[in-house]
Nucleic acid binder design. Structure first.
Length: 445
RNA sequence: GUGGCCAUCGUUCAAUGGUUAGGACCGCGGUUUGUGGAGCCGCAGAUGAGGGUUCAAUUCCCUCUGGCCACC
């Protein structure tokens, strides 16, 4: 029946249970998760998350738009590359331009002219990672702005207030993340217990309306703590369950074990599961295989801004001199508009010249690469072919942990076609057909 | 034409009569996971040419070459 509870855990749990009785009735969830398929060979699953601003097919990856913009992209770019939902940061938008100003402008969707779903982070992570933290206590986290040094206090109540003003489809409970390795096991446990108390406070402070609220299960990399945290958060009326404190400096094996322990404790729960911070294709695949539905990360966009392209079977560094004379696209199988129109030589030139277009074009490509990858995973799960497609998925994942490609060894099958490649198809059909054709041709070895 | 000043990695600056002449930028690579177009880590790269003084010259002297300034 699990390990005995610590003193703090016991009292927190009791407090949570008594608090939960007085929590507002949550009624129909603004984040209804419809499970469509489960992989017969394992824990992978695919579904639909119904949100006020639309439907998110899962598993899926959310591009990060910290300051109410995915850096270098506009909403049309995001829509065209297949982004179903994006993440924005509570901490950043609270400091600038201010959540009340965003509210006066009609909320995040209207402010940034993005009509699909949005999820906001709670600010917990940024408070401890960005600004020089002044002090963190039971009440909340007192910190200094990374912009002007001014002092602020973030509490679960304050985080809910800010997120409700920002008005995303999904808000997230205020937590105290602790990166494993940076703290003692006791610190990890303490932060977990505080996160539990803060979860209850977040729920009490959040008025539901049409905004969903997700809770965060912590516990570092200790499977026992992960299981306890997941069980605790599961007992609360959140609309979705987040896996926090990962995607840090843990090894893939440690992370996989932590995910397995968390998911095991969520067995039978119908809510969506979101692993915060993970963005490498191979890492995502590992987590999907263990039952995770949603992800976010700065990684694909950040590495794009520093010249790294994720392509089928590996990755390229556009700063490498060899690309200056290559007329082929980043990835002949990719259906993004960057690959449809521009050569590696041009991109390599743009990066060296520090031209703004470089960042946009490569961000589009990397995010499209990951969106396509997730779409392939969804299709495989829904068609029951995940197990047989797994080797191919791994082989073409691209990104960290996959080979660094030189000029000669790309998985290139397109002839050196002189001029225009197939035109980029903005919405769906042509893009899908192109991708399918590409996937079929991958059969050759 | 005369006088003065200058000449060090691709660029821009340091240093020194005596181990491997140093930095920055550029170049060649690497790193990046609930956002820093940031940062960080490696590697490569030079004493204009020719003489002389000296145990020893990138350093002191002469000539040449090139550049800058002033005067005619």
């Amino acid at each position: 029946m699990g390990p005995p509870l610590s003193q703090g855990e016991r009292s927190a749990r009791l407090a949570a249970l008594s608090d939960a009785a007085t929590l507002p009735v949550r009624g129909t969830s603004p984040a209804r998760f419809e499970l469509l398929a489960t992989d017969p060979a394992g824990g992978a699953r695919s579904g639909r998350l119904h949100l006020p601003h639309g439907v998110v097919e899962t598993p899926d990856f959310m591009p990060v738009g910290t300051n109410a913009t995915v850096k270098s992209l506009d909403p049309d770019d995001l829509r065209n590359l297949g982004a179903q939902i994006i993440l924005a940061n509570t901490y950043h938008l609270y400091l600038r331009p201010g959540h009340e100003r965003v509210a006066r402008m009609g909320g995040l969707n209207r402010f940034m002219d993005w009509d699909r779903p949005i999820l906001t982070d709670s600010g917990g992570f940024q408070v401890v990672s960005l600004g020089p933290l002044m002090r963190i206590g039971e009440e909340g986290a007192r910190f200094r702005s990374h912009l002007d040094g001014s002092q602020h206090l973030f509490t679960p109540e304050r985080s809910m207030e800010v997120q409700q003003a920002l008005a995303p489809d999904i808000a997230v409970a205020f937590d105290q993340p602790v990166m494993p390795g940076a703290s003692s096991p006791r610190d990890v446990e303490r932060a977990m217990e505080r996160t539990h108390r803060w979860a209850v406070r977040s729920l009490r402070a959040h008025r539901k309306g049409d905004q969903a609220l997700f809770g965060i299960a912590q516990g570092g990399i200790d499977p026992d703590l992960r299981a306890r945290s997941a069980a605790f958060i599961r007992a609360l009326p959140f609309d979705g369950i987040n896996l926090g404190g990962l995607a840090g400096d843990e090894t893939p094996e440690q992370r996989n074990r932590a995910v397995e322990a968390t998911i095991a404790a969520l067995e039978g729960d119908g809510r969506v599961r979101y692993l915060m911070g993970l963005g490498s294709p191979l890492d995502l695949l590992d987590a999907v295989l263990r039952g995770v539905d949603l992800f976010d990360s700065v990684l694909p966009a950040r590495v794009a801004r520093t010249g790294q392209a994720w392509v089928a079977g590996g990755r390229l560094n556009l700063y490498n001199a060899r690309h200056l004379d290559e007329e082929q696209p980043l990835d002949a199988r990719c259906d993004c508009r960057t690959c449809a129109r521009f050569s590696r030589a041009y991109l390599a030139h743009l990066f060296r010249a520090e031209e703004l277009l470089a960042y946009r074009l490569l961000t589009i490509h990397n995010l499209r690469h990951l969106a396509s990858f997730m779409a392939r995973i969804r299709t495989a799960i829904r068609s029951g072919t995940l197990a047989t497609e797994l080797p191919q998925l791994r082989a073409t994942a691209g990104g960290p942990g996959t080979p660094r490609l030189g000029s000669g060894d790309e998985p290139e099958e397109a002839p050196a076609r002189g001029a225009m490649r197939p035109r980029y198809a903005a919405e769906g059909r042509v893009a899908v057909r192109t991708r399918k054709r590409a996937v079929e041709s991958e059969g050759r070895e």
